[in-house]
């Protein structure tokens, strides 16, 4: 959920999504869902001459699983908050695991 929440803070900002087929799409982040599927508007393909597949497309949906990288606007990324959230989520993840282990032990007794 960490990255889903993070992307929601970037709605309206310009990002570049690099796909696993080497296509690079720059646009304004319109929305995101829990699978990290991404919707961009006012898109531009980098190296349009070489990759003229989306010349008549302004808005698009990108399936999260085809993303290789996302280039982020550094000035809009609060690294302190990200690090805190990463630690917090790691802790919660562990708690969940321990609870599941305890439940399994109890049910096997």
């Amino acid at each position: 959920m960490l990255f889903y929440s993070f992307y929601k803070t970037l709605v309206g900002k310009e990002i570049t999504v690099e796909l696993k087929n080497d296509l690079s799409i720059t646009g304004l982040l319109q929305s995101v869902d829990q699978f990290l599927n991404i919707k961009l508007k006012d898109i531009k393909i980098n190296e349009e001459q070489k990759y003229p597949y989306m010349l008549s497309v302004r808005n698009c949906f990108i399936r999260g699983s085809v993303v290789r990288y996302v280039h982020l606007p550094a000035e809009d990324v609060d690294v302190e908050t990200l690090q805190d959230h990463s630690r917090l989520e790691a802790r919660e993840q562990k708690k969940m695991q321990q609870m599941q282990q305890q439940q399994q032990q109890q049910s096997s007794k």
Partner: peptide, 25 residues
């Protein structure tokens, strides 16, 4: 992989036979 909304005006202006490129990877 990707779903794009086609802008009809832009699409009508494209001269498809003149757009030469390798197939998408």
């Amino acid at each position: 992989a990707v779903v794009g909304e086609i802008d009809k005006e832009l699409d009508d202006k494209l001269d498809l036979p003149s757009i030469v490129a390798d197939p998408l990877k």
